[in-house]
Design a binder for these strands. Structure first.
Length: 278
DNA sequence: AGATCTACCTGGTTGC
DNA sequence: TGCAACCAGGTAGATC
């Protein structure tokens, strides 16, 4: 399940192979995976050079030489991997596979595949106007790594909603999904269903610090591969071996040895330590 | 405002 | 073996 560390890793592993190359065309294998009223075909007419690969929240951004289209300045392609989306780079014209949804054709026959078994993910343009006319982009908050601790505290303190629910809302803080929400709450010793308003300023600072540390450590391990996630080179990440709680229900807490519990919080499977987390 | 439910999808696992 | 039920989870949208 690609969250911030996984998307960041895909961006970092994809960039060296595509930056500086011409994007000749974008082929859409599955119509629903292209979610833009502007046609992907317009790429063929421009064939812009790819400038860099970046990330905004869980969006992966392929920046190209800007060009005008429909009164907008296109800055690049944005991919949302959702649950099973993957991006792979091939240095030869590889045949499409069963789950290939979008193909980027680069110069010299090189290709980037957007594979997505469950078809939840999508690709579209991002433009100079995305902050105004793309609802998801417009509301997307900063991620914990780019947020000052004080900003994070301000965004959460006094809210009556549950803390885990808020961590998952991309318009409050971006990049966090089910895995890193549970892991950060464990590190901060906070129960997932605590109302945010009951958290002290100190607890919120600690939670921010926990998010930063768990995200940075995961990036250092190339993310977590539970099932589907791979880097752009097809490698697995290894942070799944460092989980304290995610997927460990019934097993003993590494700190206090009592069994970890599972329950549904904010509609998601949630694992926590009823002893360490308050 | 917030919580809960459903929809979007398919592959893998479990249970009969 | 065959097959149905269920689960995984990011986001949008509807409803209470």
């Amino acid at each position: 399940m690609p969250e911030l560390p996984e998307v960041e890793t895909v961006a970092r592993t994809l960039a060296p192979d595509v930056a500086g190359k011409k994007l000749l065309s974008v082929f859409v294998c599955n119509a629903k995976s292209w979610q833009d009223e502007l046609s992907a075909d317009s790429i063929s007419a421009v064939q812009p050079k790819i400038l860099k690969v970046g990330r905004k929240g869980k969006l992966l951004l392929v920046y190209v030489e800007p060009f005008f289209l429909g009164g907008l300045q296109v800055l690049g392609l944005a991919f949302h991997l959702k649950m099973t989306g993957r991006l792979f780079y091939y240095d030869f014209p590889k045949e499409y596979e069963k789950h290939t949804r979008i193909v980027l054709n680069l110069e010299n026959g090189q290709r980037v595949f957007f594979d997505d078994a469950r078809k939840f993910g999508y690709c579209r343009f991002f433009t100079d106007r995305s902050a105004e006319n793309w609802e998801f982009w417009k509301k997307l908050a900063k991620d914990p790594l780019e947020m000052a601790p004080e900003e994070f505290v301000l965004a959460l303190q006094g809210k009556s909603a549950g803390i885990k629910s808020l961590l998952l809302q991309q318009d409050i803080v971006s990049g966090i999904g089910n895995i890193y929400a549970d892991e950060a709450l464990f590190r901060a010793k906070i129960l997932p269903d605590r109302k945010a308003g009951t958290l002290s300023e100190q607890e919120l600072f600690l939670l921010h610090q926990s998010l930063v540390s768990v995200l940075e450590e995961s990036i250092a391990f190339c993310g977590s591969s539970i099932k589907d996630y791979r880097t752009a080179k097809g490698d697995v990440g290894s942070f799944q071996n460092k989980f304290n709680v995610y997927g460990r229900e019934g097993q003993n807490c590494f700190l206090c040895r009592s069994p970890l519990q599972k329950k549904t919080v904010a509609g998601r499977t949630t694992v926590f330590c009823p002893c360490c987390q308050k």
